[in-house]
Nucleic acid binder design. Structure first.
Lengths: 200, 200
DNA sequence: GTCTATAAAAGGATAGAC
DNA sequence: GTCTATCCTTTTATAGAC
């Protein structure tokens, strides 16, 4: 592991703690104790706690390929299966966390009630990049999806299903809620594929 | 308006403030200033802030008919249309809040990362009551939904779509994200209804 | 059951030496 | 760029009189 700058250490710790405890429930003291840094070092790099948040959201945005898409899509070629492989990645995280998993972006999006414009833009940007990746899969599926289907809306619906499924699995502490959401989405795609084969 | 007990005043204020600002960002002082009560009165009724939260979640649970279902279903008979009338109610709230609306239950479910069992149970119970109501509509739709469709899973999928749509509309400050989620769900129901008519 | 005063702790942030 | 010490505010909660 290459020597980490103070900035890297803080962002790394904050990504984990904001995810585990939320933004408001993570104190500067938490970040300092986790990183073994002193407050002077943190405030030298990040003038305020919100600046740490911005750094975290930028890191998620910039890391979507490496952190999320590549691991999920390593051995998957079929574009539709890529979508469900991505969801399978979330399922793994749910199970690995004993169903306490929350999407880091979605959780922040609901926790922060009056976010700074910069924060809000970054949340939106993270969602956009996610749905754009899924939209790419839908586009690559070509004629399997009927003409006239709004590809962007369908991609956003995949995010909708993921976020809603994660929320319910977490609330009930039961993966099956996520599984059922994915299954319904799968049926939706299958109905669409069937409709593409049998025009009107 | 009947004279309100201290308890009622606090629950009423807390429902609004937890919804507007979140649980962590609402202080006891906020509740006191909003209700014009003194801390002695509050702590006499609610030994801790978490007890206020529990009271709020119980109020949502006990008020689902009067607060949510009756207003949405007042003039709707068709069971499938009831589902979309319910979603239309959320749309109204989104628009009325300039797209800052968050589902009170969903937001708390994601904000609270290590909830007390009692709190977690109440969150789950709120979701259950919501999906049970939708499941009733699906059941009432009878043969319009194909046999073999998991009605409970489909009802949970309606909640999934609502929560995911609300989250994205709020993040982008744009109702159209909610509208697209509802539209996709509508297409899903239409595909199901079509499948129910043309067996295999 | 409500009042005032206040404890006790945690939180974000700053200052100034090194 | 990092260290220690500390300020100031907010926050939950309690004590004890009325």
């Amino acid at each position: 592991m290459a020597p980490q700058s103070a900035r890297d250490k803080i962002i790394h710790a904050a990504m984990e703690l904001f995810w585990l405890k939320g933004y408001n429930s993570t104190s500067i003291a938490d970040l300092l104790s986790r990183t073994q840094l002193n407050s002077g070092s943190l405030y030298h790099v990040f003038p305020s706690k919100q600046d740490v948040l911005i750094g975290v959201l930028e890191a998620y945005r910039d890391g979507i390929e490496e952190m999320l898409l590549q691991p999920a899509w390593g051995h998957v070629d079929d574009p539709i299966e890529k979508i469900f492989a991505l969801l399978q990645g979330y399922r793994t995280m749910i199970v690995d966390t004993d169903c306490t998993y929350g999407c880091p972006i979605g959780s922040l999006a609901l926790e922060l009630h009056e976010p700074d414009p910069r924060v809000r833009d970054l949340l939106a940007e993270n969602f956009e990049n996610w749905t754009r990746a899924v939209e790419g899969c839908i586009g690559a599926a070509g004629k399997r999806i009927p003409r006239g289907v709004d590809k962007k809306a369908l991609a956003q619906f995949v995010l909708t299903a993921m976020e809603g499924g994660v929320m319910q699995a977490r609330t009930h502490r039961d993966v099956s809620y996520f599984d059922r959401a994915v299954k319904q989405l799968r049926e939706h795609f299958e109905l669409l594929e069937k409709a593409a084969k049998t025009p009107a």
